[in-house]
Computed example of a mutant assay.
Amino acid sequence: MPDQLPTHAGPFALGTFASGASGEAGFPGLITGGRVRDLSDLVPSIRALVEEWDSWLPRLEDLARSTEGTWHELAALRVLTPIEPGQILQSGANYRKHVVDLVAAEKESVHGATPEEARADAELMMDERARNGVPYVFLGSPRAISGPYDDIVLPALGEQHDWELELALVIGKSGKNIAAEDAMDYVAGYTISNDLTTRDRLYRPDLKAIGTDWFTAKNADTFLPTGPFLVPAAFVGDPGDLRITLRHNGVVRQDESTKDMIFDIPRLIAYVSTTTTLRPGDLLLTGSPAGNGAHWGVFLKPGDVVESEITGLGHQRNTVRSGQ
Results as ranks from 00 to 15, higher is better:
residue 12 F to H: 15
residue 24 E to R: 08
residue 24 E to P: 01
residue 27 F to T: 07
residue 28 P to Q: 08
residue 37 R to V: 00
residue 47 R to E: 01
residue 63 L to I: 02
residue 65 R to I: 00
residue 75 A to T: 12
residue 77 L to K: 14
residue 80 L to Q: 12
residue 81 T to P: 05
residue 84 E to M: 07
residue 91 S to M: 05
residue 99 V to P: 06
residue 99 V to W: 03
residue 100 V to L: 02
residue 100 V to G: 05
residue 111 H to A: 15
residue 111 H to P: 00
residue 113 A to F: 06
residue 117 E to N: 08
residue 117 E to I: 06
residue 117 E to S: 08
residue 118 A to F: 05
residue 120 A to F: 01
residue 122 A to G: 10
residue 127 D to H: 05
residue 132 N to D: 14
residue 134 V to G: 15
residue 139 L to C: 12
residue 143 R to A: 13
residue 152 I to E: 07
residue 152 I to D: 07
residue 156 A to G: 14
residue 159 E to Q: 14
residue 165 L to D: 02
residue 167 L to V: 08
residue 169 L to H: 07
residue 169 L to K: 02
residue 170 V to F: 10
residue 178 I to Y: 13
residue 179 A to I: 05
residue 180 A to G: 09
residue 189 G to H: 04
residue 196 L to G: 10
residue 196 L to F: 02
residue 197 T to Q: 02
residue 207 L to F: 07
residue 215 F to L: 06
residue 228 P to T: 03
residue 232 P to F: 06
residue 232 P to M: 11
residue 237 G to I: 05
residue 243 R to Y: 01
residue 244 I to K: 04
residue 249 N to L: 00
residue 251 V to K: 13
residue 261 M to E: 01
residue 263 F to N: 12
residue 270 A to L: 09
residue 274 T to G: 15
residue 274 T to P: 00
residue 274 T to D: 11
residue 275 T to F: 05
residue 280 P to T: 12
residue 290 A to V: 04
residue 304 D to C: 07
residue 308 S to E: 04
residue 309 E to P: 00
residue 311 T to C: 10
residue 313 L to H: 04
residue 317 R to G: 00
residue 323 G to N: 04
